[in-house]
Design a protein around this nucleic acid. Structure first.
Lengths: 223, 223
DNA sequence: TCGGGCTCTAAACCTTGGTTTAGGTAGTTC
DNA sequence: GAACTACCTAAACCAAGGTTTAGAGCCCGA
């Protein structure tokens, strides 16, 4: 990336977002910050991973622009840590001294982009857009999951049991026999459960439960 | 990869599979073939993409080992073609003259691995195993889809309509009003439909339909 | 053109689900 | 300990789903 001489011919298509930059090269970092801010993005600049870790993550769609070679921990190791911590922050790597194995490793672990310096401004902005789009999707999914769990939280233990049995397609009388109560009672629990989780049909209930179950799953689109 | 001097210390963990190698370097190609065959894999060696395209794809879990730089079409362009044709064959790239943008592009498009020559035999075998595993999963998914479609094929038009309405959670009487027939008739179609698609409960039906719907979707696991 | 097969239609009958009402028990608060 | 709350239990009644049987229309090959 050439410092200075930013042109307005580049474009972003997102509706705001935060970009977290970790790079120990101050002039480069500042230049990157100017570019990103000029596109209406909010920037958070860090000189090291330690600095980054000390900071609070914005509660908004974000992505991380990370130099591979950093003092202390390498960017690739940090990527692994971030993934292990369950923080699904999309990462864009930039590097002056990259090689192919490094690139492959980063991409395999889900990096959005791996850019070798020097790169075109637009390439970075495209990557940032893609990263922010992914983070938006991830955040949406997380929120959906939280909302689903909230709906389950209002259920009593019995109702919860019956929810899962019903979602499996078992009959009231089968459920009743399993847990040793009368079918009439199962019906009551079932009715209350359906009201509490706010579903009108068995079909809706099944879809709700299935969405809930595939929590660990995460489908990635390839551009 | 060093020609000759193959050791048995390398390992594969798959239960057979086909590896399609496209590389214009004959000695290298042959050496690769020996390595793969020594691990119990079936090999198909091609000197060019044209040769590969003339051949028939094995109807078994397979993966493609592709030199990036080939006479005529480049390996990367070929990857795009293969993907566009809907052939989900996992691709492992090998190259002597790779760079980072090339690597990133290949990985973004779903390549299993991108190996720079020289590489360790085990790295290639690991990649082949991963590729074969992915292809096995893909083939299984395809087969599931075909089986699901076969179950729908035995339905009459009316039954098909009612299947989707029922799976949406609509009541018999609502369906009846929509399509202008008596509720009694809907019940009959519904009953026949459930028997034909071999599901015992509405829950099963919903899951069947939902699996069917996410045909274009393909979740990729990151290693 | 006549039977045979397939589809759509529908009524009758039975099973299952859904809702209301209500009693019982345990824990909590005042 | 009385009142309150939350939960589990269950019967009674009504609504919806499931199954069987059967007739009407249609196309096709004998």
């Amino acid at each position: 990336m050439d410092l200075g001489s930013r042109t307005k011919s580049v474009s972003v298509a997102n509706s705001g977002g935060h970009v977290l930059v970790v790079d120990d090269d101050e002039p480069f970092r500042a230049s990157l910050g100017r570019l990103l801010r000029s596109m209406g993005l909010q920037t958070h600049l860090f000189a090291s991973i330690a600095d980054f870790q000390g900071a609070e993550l914005p509660d908004a769609p974000s992505c991380l622009v990370l130099d591979v070679r950093l003092p202390g921990q390498s960017g690739l190791d940090f990527q692994k840590d971030v993934a292990a911590k369950g923080i699904g922050l999309p990462i864009i790597f930039i590097t002056a001294y990259g090689d192919i194995p490094m690139t492959v490793q980063a991409m395999k672990r889900g990096a959005v982009e791996f850019l070798a310096k020097p790169f075109r401004d637009q390439d970075l902005l495209d990557a940032v857009n893609l990263g922010l789009a992914r983070d938006r999707a991830r955040r949406e999914k997380d929120e959906t999951q939280i909302a689903l769990r909230a709906r389950l939280d209002v259920l009593t233990p019995r109702e919860r049991v019956i929810l899962f049995e019903v979602a499996k397609g078992r009959l009231n009388k089968q459920i009743a026999a399993d847990i040793g109560i009368k079918e009439a009672t199962v019906k009551v629990h079932r009715c209350n459960m359906m009201r509490k989780v706010k579903v009108a049909s068995l079909a809706e209930l099944c879809r709700m439960v299935d969405k809930l179950k595939l929590l660990p799953k995460d489908s990635e689109e390839i551009s």
